[in-house]
Design a protein around this nucleic acid. Structure first.
Lengths: 141, 141
DNA sequence: ATAATTGCAAACACTTTGCACCTGT
DNA sequence: ACAGGTGCAAAGTGTTTGCAATTAT
């Protein structure tokens, strides 16, 4: 379905480096395009989308769909990241992404598999809610 | 931000009934439009989207973003549905939606709140993975 | 040399908006 | 009568695709 990319190009190298440097963030295509435009080194929209697709296929980055806007964001996958007990929680107020390494989640995963026969895909699941910072600011917001 | 709807119209009545009749499903705007066209009772696109928005605001229906396509789907909320310990799991293979009423999840929610200071929003969170039917068909798929 | 890649512009899918006409009260 | 609602068509997002020019090998 997706193309295998054979040549090494500066655009791709830059783009992948950018994702690596922001591995803690969920980056949108728009952010990438703006970033490279702003540093006077623009990369074409189609190139960005095509390369992102291919990186997703190669399992080098992960793709998420933003629950608010329905648009995609991407994140570099660490080599050493097992991804097995690592969930992401996204604050719907401030948009912050929280990385959750937690025993309890693995337990839930086991429970859901054993009792409900459903195999949870941690990589595809994002937990939504309100982060502690925003809770402190006031529930009413 | 959203308009309050004052008059009772046939379009809205029909649309809400349709959602009520399909309360177990996640329905897209497209499905709604097609349905009413097919029964020779079409409702305009804008009317559909506007009414869905307003129903979401009034907490009469819930909106989900499809993780594959990034498009929205909607679901009628039962009056008696507390929504407190009711999660949705969506199979990424067959698209089936599974309703999960489960103690363990409430425990996780408590844990995440106490230990990580994050208030999980169950309504906004969908767990993704593979359902039992698809697992039986073969892991390789 | 030549196969792959780029980037524009045009097409896409889904959703929102402006506006003249229609409907519920 | 008139505020409110409908539905078309047009505009807006975010994403994908066709293609001629460009670049990596």
């Amino acid at each position: 379905m997706k193309k295998i990319l054979k040549y090494k190009t500066t655009q791709r190298e830059n783009l992948l480096n950018y994702l690596k440097q922001n591995k803690k963030e969920h980056i949108t295509a728009e952010q990438i395009i703006k970033h490279f435009k702003s540093i006077g080194n623009p990369i074409g929209k189609s190139t960005v989308y095509r390369y992102l697709d291919s990186l997703v296929c190669e399992n080098i980055i992960r793709k998420y769909i933003n629950q608010e806007r329905g648009s995609a964001c991407f994140q570099y996958i660490e080599n050493n990241e097992t991804c097995t007990n690592h969930y992401h929680m996204k604050c719907t107020k401030c948009g912050d992404l929280i990385h959750l390494n937690c025993e309890e989640i693995s337990e839930l995963q086991n429970h859901i598999f054993k009792e409900h026969g459903f195999e949870l895909d941690i990589c595809k699941t994002v937990l939504y809610g309100t982060c502690s910072k925003c809770l402190k600011k006031g529930d009413f917001v």
